[in-house]
């Protein structure tokens, strides 16, 4: 059994490559934020407190169009709806009797990437791991935003281009090993790739925001596979299910 300090260190270590990927993405977010009228300090604060890429981009754009706070809240809920699903998936892996504080702490760390590595890690999700990753990654996200605002497009485009695939590489590292082990997951991944490509190309659907496309496809495809290939094991969230 690993101690909490070790688990935190493990999370921190895995959070560093995430943070480097964030840094590059945040830099381009910062460039957009500057156009929308944010200062570097404001961008830094926004990224430190929100740490949500698509949601923040939308929030910055809404600020520029002088949208009301109600509109901001509703649209933030919609664009970040996948976090709600991710929260359910993480809580599903926590046994009955898990303290509310622990559930909230784990939930508070949800980003696409931290969720990914937390799900990939065997055993019960622990806040020591998620906070380790969060503390490594989010400052780089905030710093990248601030630098994007203050320095503009100073990184060569080729470097930004190369760094921008780091996040996707991490996603692949999370989904491919289980896809190899479990044919149903493999099929779900392939169907997801195909539908996601179709959703970008098809009329009407492609007009939806990327966040909304993601949530619609996630619900539809996951429901389809839940019907076709139900999982009957009762050990979900158990001791050491090495999924």
């Amino acid at each position: 059994m690993k101690g909490n300090r070790e688990i935190f260190a493990e999370g921190y270590k895995n959070g560093i490559p995430i943070g480097l990927g964030y840094f590059a993405v945040a830099f381009s977010l910062g460039i957009a934020a500057r156009d929308y009228g944010f200062t570097a300090v404001q961008g830094f604060l926004a990224s430190l407190l929100t740490y949500a890429s698509a949601g923040q981009y939308m929030g910055f754009a809404l600020y520029a169009t002088n949208a009301t706070l109600i509109e901001l809240i509703v649209l933030t809920f919609i664009i970040n709806a996948r976090y709600l699903l991710m929260g359910f998936a993480l809580n599903q892996r926590m046994p009955e009797g898990t303290p509310l504080s622990r559930r909230i702490l784990v939930g508070s760390c949800i980003t696409d990437e931290i969720f990914g590595i937390t799900i990939a890690r065997p055993g019960i999700p622990t806040p020591y791991y998620t906070f380790g990753a969060l503390i490594a990654a989010v400052p780089l996200w905030a710093l990248g935003t601030a630098l994007g605002i203050s320095l503009g497009n100073i990184l060569p485009a080729r470097i930004v281009s190369a760094l921008s695939v780091a996040l996707f590489g991490m996603f692949l590292a999370v989904i491919i090993p289980p896809a190899r082990k479990d044919k149903a997951v493999g099929a779900a991944v392939l169907v997801s790739f195909a539908c996601s490509l179709a959703a970008v190309k098809l009329p009407y659907i492609s007009d939806l925001s990327q966040g909304n496309r993601t949530i619609i496809l996630t619900v539809l495809i996951s429901a389809l596979f839940a019907v076709l290939f139900p999982r009957t094991d009762k050990t979900e969230g158990g001791e050491s299910d090495a999924e």
Binding site: A89, I175, A188, T214, T218, A223, V227
Partner: peptide
């Protein structure tokens, strides 16, 4: 069982959709 299965597939589907 349905919800359990649904939540089992959610992470992989979400990340796959976001990747490609």
């Amino acid at each position: 069982t349905f919800l359990q299965s649904f939540l089992y597939y959610v992470p992989y589907v979400t990340l796959a959709v976001m990747t490609f």
